[in-house]
Design a protein around this nucleic acid. Structure first.
Lengths: 199, 199
DNA sequence: CGGTCTATGGATCGTTGTTCCACACACTGT
DNA sequence: ACAGTGTGTGGAACAACGATCCATAGACCG
């Protein structure tokens, strides 16, 4: 058929891969299906991405960029708008959950090894760090305001990140014995913050 | 070659699958490799397990049974031996982490969707619940002793479970920005317990 | 010991990730 | 506008995978 302009090739592939991932999950995402959905030859995938893992990594990297944007500006409301430092952290973690629920399969590729042998590249890990840094800043502000116990903001943010991620994972895989997952998530966040010296 | 006695078939397959899983991970675990390692014909796998997912589910189920035993009796020390209710919870969660670190790939199959489309069966979820119930009991005891805020023990135990699991996941996949993972894990556990009313 | 059950081994199918190739179109500089 | 180079296309092909089918022969039970 008509040949796809080189300039659009990569973007088309990435968009198709992300769409397919959202539809059928990492399991149903095949190179042939991506190529068909992107209206591109299977070979073109390998001209742009060394392997399926490499493509998934690009999708994950895009996902972290989306996540950063979502954290900073969900619904057009900048996170800085929230004055109270603790509320700021709570809102940030709330945005984190809403992103996961809105993009469950993408989230799975970003954070879980949904595909055997797949692990995110160092470059993507850098992008992931950017998303964590939003939380690190909020934690640092809360510490400066005396609303959290003193500590290393990065370590404390990572603790909150871990707790939130654990709760989300169980919710996404429906493993666990919880009725109201949203309330459960809030409870975990609140308990962590109390344990870290808030209130 | 010599035919495997029927009575040993299933156990041989499960043992081989668990061994292979520990060695090469879920990605390298193929039906043919399991059959070879178990010294069994590929077809026999399908006589006993409907599919690869079914086999993985059995391995996961065995894993939860091992986990329950480990939680209750690590190193021959019954968990009840620890008198202080909070210490009891801390020790229980410590055992949880040591199990994960000793059996990282098995842990991955049990808790993470390491294989696309794989999810643990309801039967295995029941076994998982048994492992959680160890923590539920410890939480209930702590509440009765007035060492934790009042609440629904199952919900509170699930919160601790989620936080611990989140920390472990980042440690196992080496995603995160932490030097001392053991200390990080302890910090998460301690913060959660403080937030839940201990100390 | 005889009859049934079932493990074996081997072929086979469809799908997957990946590679190879000749061809044709798009892009570049002149 | 035009030739030359770069690169996307289409299709075949490979090895490995999960899964199924089959005849045979060995294990199991009364």
């Amino acid at each position: 058929m008509a040949r796809t302009p080189s300039s659009e090739l990569e973007a088309n592939i990435l968009r198709a891969a992300a769409d397919l991932l959202a539809e059928v999950g990492a399991g149903g995402l095949t190179q042939r299906a991506v190529a068909t959905a992107a209206d591109v030859s299977p070979q073109s995938l390998y001209n742009r991405f060394a392997s399926k893992h490499d493509l998934l990594d690009a999708v994950a990297n895009d996902g972290f960029e989306l996540l950063v944007d979502h954290l900073r500006n969900e619904g057009g409301v900048p996170l800085e708008t929230i004055e109270d430092p603790i509320d700021n952290i709570v809102e940030g973690l709330g945005r984190y959950r809403r992103f996961a629920m809105a993009n469950p399969r993408r989230y799975g590729v970003m954070f879980d090894a949904d595909v055997p042998g797949f692990r995110v590249s160092d470059r993507t890990l850098d992008t992931a760090f950017t998303s964590l840094s939003v939380l690190v800043d909020a934690v640092a502000s809360a510490m400066e305001a005396g609303r959290l116990d003193e500590g290393e903001p990065l370590q404390v943010a990572q603790m909150l990140w871990a707790a939130a991620h654990g709760a989300l994972r169980f919710e996404l895989t429906e493993v666990g014995f919880v009725d109201d997952w949203a309330a459960h998530y809030d409870s975990v966040v609140t308990a962590m913050l109390r344990g870290l010296g808030s209130g």
